[in-house]
Design a protein around this nucleic acid. Structure first.
Lengths: 336, 336
DNA sequence: CTGAAAGCGCTAACAG
DNA sequence: CTGTTAGCGCTTTCAG
């Protein structure tokens, strides 16, 4: 293994100069920098991560805790994940993966051993058991998703409440008077992952403002549940003409079920999804949708975390970052 | 931060004794062990990962490189991932995530900086550009998937060739004489990720052995491509009665398309999938299938890697581990 | 069964 | 702009 001393000898400078050349923490003359770079390349030098971490108290690793649970749409998690890793690499950091089931203990371990410099937590619940720990943690963290009270934390997510409103308003604008929201599986509501409730709240508020007749429904992510729900919705309200789907797992089945029940989209029924753009585009009838910008959220989360790492004292990091929802009209919506 | 010295003082022993108590690398009297454990708990001691890595040249971290590409079914990757992390944790190791696009450079970096002790690589191509590097690497690695030549490597995967055979044989056994295999998207064949070809080879061989009329088809993972393919298959061969689907993305669409074209499953058409069990179970007609045991493969891959880490000289690690495919009959298959 | 002490390879004062 | 040096916190000989 080639070490910093070897490079130093080869470039005829001191080890610290190599270190500074690598970190850029003090100016190096052009000439010696060239020599150093040549030596590094020549010898294939790569600094020992552990030694670095020990001397600098920085591991250049971030922890990412991902959810495992039912009702969380896997492709979206994957998008987050990839975007986190990619963005972190852009900041010269690596990503250590923790699963939700490691819980607070897992976070304590990776933080306490100085394995990681910062922590990203996904799928935060309204009263997440990890919150007290994260508030008192001596390394920075960023939450993807919102707890009931973000005080003392840094949280980022799509503004789901605004998304719910936006959908309802678009349906109102199109002239629909009777609408429904099909949301997450029941478990998601039960464990109080905020986003499901927030969509429902925004949706309901906007419906009331516009005097729409509306209802909200949980739905298991199975084709059968979707079929049954479609039937029930039409049975309970045959005049339903507007639908919001916030449940990636069943969007397709639900649309197909309505078509089978004689409701042509968008002629008889306008549908708006809350889902990733690529999924909306791939529906049999391209789905008008509010995008779920997983990659953007993830990369902004990393950027926030990096900022906190670089400015430990800064009070300028917002506790809450809510991304404004963006609606794209495709072919699943039309006038009443 | 509490360090080993603090614990040593508190437990009235030397730092080295603490270290040995933690690692179990030399016997400790029951009495002092108790004192040490108490002190550790009392002080909340967690050893510094970097210091450990530096002194022991072991980071207790494994790297996992995951694919990002189209045609790779995301839920399966996620299963791998979770199983890798969980199994690694069982061996007191953490997992660092690398994306495919970091390529050989990424591997060189994490190995060269001693950030990780071992490497897991997913989605290996027949002539993967990373192979020469992995063969010469000074830390152990395990490949999930098979290159053309596994010599000097450790590879594990489902025996896809046997899976293809098994499917064809089951159809033959049921009396089917005219069958088809719908496989991966064209890109997967093009980049020569072995498994697609292997299934086709096993399938073809078994069909010829049994004198079946057969054909093999790539298919884009879209509902429309599935519909078109179903039409084409029946057009080209109206007497088709047996179908293998090795393409999670379209299994459902394909089955639905055949039903729409008047072929009831299993009455008119027997279908066997190669996919995870839970997906097979969730099809409209529960799908007879060869399981894709992602979790098992992942956990065995980690176990192999751990073994190589603990027995650096051992020649007893097999180059190739092929899991025997297991067929579960559900409701999508019946006699001709 | 336990202790003392020499590093592991790097960073960051401090000094010039 | 560069060099010298004292650690960072732990593991592991070596010694008893």
């Amino acid at each position: 293994m080639v070490k910093i001393k070897d490079v130093a000898r080869h470039a005829r400078v001191s080890p610290s100069t190599i270190s500074y050349a690598l970190s850029g923490k003090r100016p190096i003359s052009d000439e010696t920098r060239k020599r150093i770079e040549a030596s590094i390349r020549k010898l294939g030098y790569l600094p020992h991560a552990g030694a670095r971490a020990l001397a600098s108290s920085r591991s250049n690793v971030l922890a990412l805790m991902i959810p495992l649970r039912t009702g969380v749409h896997v492709p979206v998690i994957m998008q987050f994940l990839v975007s986190v890793v990619t963005t972190a690499r852009g900041h010269r950091h690596d990503v250590l993966l923790l699963t939700q089931d490691e819980g607070e203990e897992g976070l304590r371990r990776v933080a306490g051993t100085s394995l990681v410099d910062g922590i990203l937590v996904m799928d935060v619940e309204l009263n997440d058991p990890r919150l007290p720990f994260l508030r008192n943690l001596d390394i920075p963290s960023v939450l993807i998703g919102f707890p009931a009270d973000p005080a003392g934390l840094t949280c980022i997510d799509l503004d789901f409440e605004a998304a719910g409103e936006l959908c309802a308003e678009q349906l109102a604008l199109l002239g629909h008077r009777s609408v429904a929201l099909v949301g997450s599986p029941p478990q998601v509501y039960q464990r109080e992952t905020g986003f499901a409730q927030r969509v429902a709240r925004g949706f309901s508020a906007a419906c009331e403002r516009h005097g729409l007749l509306y209802s909200v429904h949980a739905c298991e992510p199975t084709a059968q549940a979707a079929r049954e729900l479609a039937q029930r919705l039409l049975y309970e309200n045959p005049r339903l003409t507007g639908l919001i789907i916030h449940n990636e797992g069943i969007a397709r089945s639900l649309m197909e079920s309505f078509e089978k029940l004689g409701r042509t989209i968008p002629r008889d029924l306008s549908v708006i999804g809350i889902c990733p753009d690529d999924e909306a585009e791939q529906m049999p009838v391209p789905l008008s949708s509010v995008s779920l910008p997983a990659s953007e959220i993830a990369s902004r989360a990393v950027t926030l975390l990096m900022y906190k790492l670089e400015n430990p004292e800064s009070s300028s990091v917002p506790e809450a970052t809510l991304l404004t929802p963006r609606l794209t009209l495709r072919e699943s919506t039309g006038p009443r």
